[in-house]
Amino acid sequence: MPAEFFPEARARGELGLAVFLNAGDPPLPVLTDLVAVLDESDVDCLELAVPFPGSPTDGPVVRRSADRALAEGVGLAETLAFVAAVRPTLKRLRIAVLADWSHSLRHAPPAGYARTVADSGADALLAHGLPPRLRTAHREALRDAGLPEVTTCYPESSPATVAEAAAHATGYLYLVARYGRSGAGTPPGGHAALAPFVGALRDLTASPIAVGFGVSAAEDLVSVALSGADAAIVGSAGVAVVERAREAGTDPVDAYRSFIAALGRPITPRPEEDTRDHPQT
Rank of each mutant, 00 (worst) to 15 (best):
G171E: 06
Y172S: 04
Y172P: 01
L173M: 03
L173I: 04
L173A: 05
Y174N: 00
L175N: 03
L175P: 01
V176H: 01
A177Q: 03
A177M: 04
R178G: 03
R178K: 07
R178D: 03
Y179Q: 13
Y179P: 01
Y179L: 09
G180V: 03
S182R: 03
S182T: 15
G183W: 12
G183D: 14
G183T: 07
G183A: 14
G185K: 05
G185I: 05
T186S: 15
P187G: 10
P187A: 12
P188G: 02
G189W: 07
G189L: 06
G189S: 09
G190W: 13
H191S: 06
H191N: 09
A192E: 10
A193P: 06
A193R: 08
A193T: 08
L194P: 08
L194H: 02
A195K: 10
F197R: 15
F197P: 06
F197V: 14
G199M: 06
L201F: 08
L201G: 11
D203P: 00
L204G: 10
L204V: 08
T205N: 11
T205Y: 12
A206F: 06
A206N: 10
S207E: 12
S207A: 15
S207G: 13
P208H: 12
P208Q: 08
P208A: 05
P208G: 02
A210C: 14
F213L: 12
F213V: 13
V215A: 12
S216G: 15
A217G: 02
A217K: 14
A217T: 10
A217S: 12
A218C: 04
A218R: 11
A218E: 11
E219L: 03
E219W: 01
E219R: 15
D220I: 07
L221C: 01
L221R: 03
S223Y: 13
S223C: 03
S223H: 12
S223R: 10
V224G: 03
V224H: 04
A225H: 04
A225S: 10
L226M: 14
L226G: 14
S227R: 04
G228F: 02
A229W: 06
D230G: 02
A231S: 09
A231G: 07
A232G: 06
A232S: 04
I233K: 09
I233M: 08
V234S: 01
S236G: 13
G238R: 04
V239N: 14
V239M: 13
V239G: 14
A240P: 00
V241D: 11
V241L: 08
V242C: 10
E243P: 01
R244I: 02
R244P: 03
A245M: 05
E247I: 00
E247Y: 00
A248V: 01
A248R: 12
A248N: 10
T250G: 06
D251K: 00
A255I: 00
A255R: 11
A255S: 14
Y256W: 14
R257S: 03
R257M: 02
R257I: 04
S258E: 15
I260D: 11
